[in-house]
């Protein structure tokens, strides 16, 4: 069990240049490339005890999508934010369901509303909208008719 700062050091030594540490007054976080996500998650879960993925969401910055993970460790309550960029045209990302089962529905919701496919997700289907709905409402280019 290591303190928050130690976790970020450990991550940056293992991946060095690919990692960019984010200074955010509320949340210590790192920006990582997409491919190393599964390894990173497994590492912080097993070695640093981050067993609780609180929130998983995506933001559409018109030119790119940005996946945002807020991860906590119960009970000593350290927290870490992980951000990853997903390219806008063929958005797909590795699924975190095998690491935290809570990601199951949250990823389905991001796929449903934002259109990011998650590889390795057991049953990636729309969860909130009816299955025959075309388009992903939360995208900036989704025009609300009427």
């Amino acid at each position: 069990m290591s303190s928050q700062q130690a976790v970020i050091e450990d991550i940056s030594n293992t991946w060095g240049n690919q990692i960019e540490v984010l200074e955010d007054e509320f949340f210590a976080g790192v920006k990582v490339p997409l491919q190393i996500l599964p390894e990173l998650f497994r590492k912080i879960r097993d070695e640093h005890g981050f067993n609780y993925l609180a929130n998983l969401t995506a933001v559409d910055h018109q030119d790119r999508f940005e996946l945002v993970y807020h991860i906590y460790s119960i009970p000593d309550n350290r927290k870490l934010m992980v951000k990853a960029d997903v390219d806008h045209d063929a958005p797909s990302a590795p699924s975190a369901v095998s690491i935290w089962p809570t990601a199951d529905w949250q990823e389905r919701e991001v796929f449903d509303l934002m259109g990011i496919r998650f590889e390795g997700h057991p049953n990636l289907k729309r969860i909130l909208l009816p299955d025959e709905f075309e388009g992903h409402p939360l995208r900036k280019d989704f025009q609300m008719k009427g």
Partner: peptide, 11 residues
């Protein structure tokens, strides 16, 4: 199965 009361508050 959820989604019957979806009003897309986030949009």
């Amino acid at each position: 199965h959820v989604g019957y009361v979806h009003r897309s508050v986030e949009k």
